[in-house]
Design a protein around this nucleic acid. Structure first.
Length: 302
DNA sequence: CCCTGTCAAGTCACG
DNA sequence: CGTGACTTGACAGGG
């Protein structure tokens, strides 16, 4: 089990997700921004290793507009040395990496333009992970997409599109249950048709689930990850109970997290803590996991 | 320097 | 029909 947080670090004063407006695009601006973001990525990974945070999500903003037609720059070659070095660091410290394209990436879209842009975006994400030299255990997590008032048809569209993906993308793509349209059970059904691994989001499951319990789902999704995929990834967050607004908590609820670790004790997976204060909560989670080894039988990775 | 409207892109629920 | 939420605030022009 590895514990991590997504995309940006709020402690080290360098977040690595700098971007700019499309109107102000220039090759010079892109190079400056990507240089900053890559340097910050290296700094964040160094911080993480020093603090036993061995799971990290790389921001989709690493190379802004990379999948947009305005970007003709060969960033892949230009930054080859730096990316290779970061990839070596990741591998030598056994860090698990994920990426998560934004809400505009919709593989099952009914609009062919949106579909084509989504492919470009997935290619960009695969480019980043390939440039880092990472194997197929570095994943790109994606929601199934739109429902378009006909879930059966929309699921079939996803399956057809998935089957036609390049191997380069397919070997990295995993699907994640979302908070309103596709439940973990829906994702599992898609796995049965395609073999695509299922990333379990605990918070989304609480908002949008069928009958299955957390442990039922974990038992099933564990089987969707094959040897080359690595152990399952799980997104964990927490929302304030009883509140009118349903939103991610500012900081981790230690009791809830400990309860979660306890009920999921038979399963091994990497946990991404999607909590606003980022590494602060992830560090608390590491302390909880480390301090309560009787639950984990040593599965927590130091 | 501060303020704030706007930002590449999609889908869906809510009023 | 317009707005907000989603994985998230930051950019950039005007005062």
């Amino acid at each position: 089990m590895k514990i991590g947080y997504p995309c940006i670090n709020l402690t080290i004063g360098c977040k690595g997700d700098r971007t700019f407006r499309l109107k102000s695009y220039s090759e010079q601006r892109l190079i400056e921004t990507v240089t900053n973001n890559i340097n910050c990525l290296a700094a964040m990974l160094t911080f993480n290793v020093e603090h036993d945070l061995l799971f990290f999500r790389v921001t989709s903003d690493l190379v802004p507009f990379a999948s947009h037609r305005v970007c003709q720059f060969d960033w892949h070659t230009y930054f080859k040395d730096q990316l290779t070095a970061i990839g070596s660091f990741i591998k030598s410290h056994n860090i698990r990496i994920s990426m998560h394209p934004g809400q505009y990436t919709v593989l099952n879209s009914q609009d062919n333009e949106i579909f084509a842009r989504s492919i470009k975006e997935l290619e960009y994400h695969a480019d980043v992970l390939d440039a880092l030299g990472l194997d197929a255990s570095a994943k790109i997590q994606l929601h199934v997409g739109g429902v378009y008032r006909d879930k059966r048809k929309s699921v079939q569209q996803f399956i057809d599109r998935y089957r036609n993906l390049n191997k380069r993308i397919k070997q990295r793509l995993v699907i994640e249950n979302d908070d309103r349209s596709y439940t973990a059970d829906d994702c599992i059904r898609i796995y049965e048709e395609t073999g695509v691994p299922v990333l379990f989001d605990v918070f989304h499951h609480e908002l949008n689930h069928s009958h299955s319990s957390i442990t039922d789902v974990l038992a099933t999704i564990t089987k969707t990850w094959q040897a080359q995929d690595g152990i399952p990834m799980v997104d964990y967050s927490y929302h304030h109970p009883g509140g009118l607004r349903v939103s991610h908590a500012k900081s981790i609820d230690s009791a809830d997290f400990e309860r979660f670790l306890t009920i999921t004790q038979p399963y091994d997976f990497d946990i991404m803590l999607e909590i606003k204060d980022k590494e602060t909560s992830a560090l608390k989670a590491v302390e909880i996991a480390r301090g309560d080894m009787r639950f984990f039988h040593g599965k927590f990775t130091h």
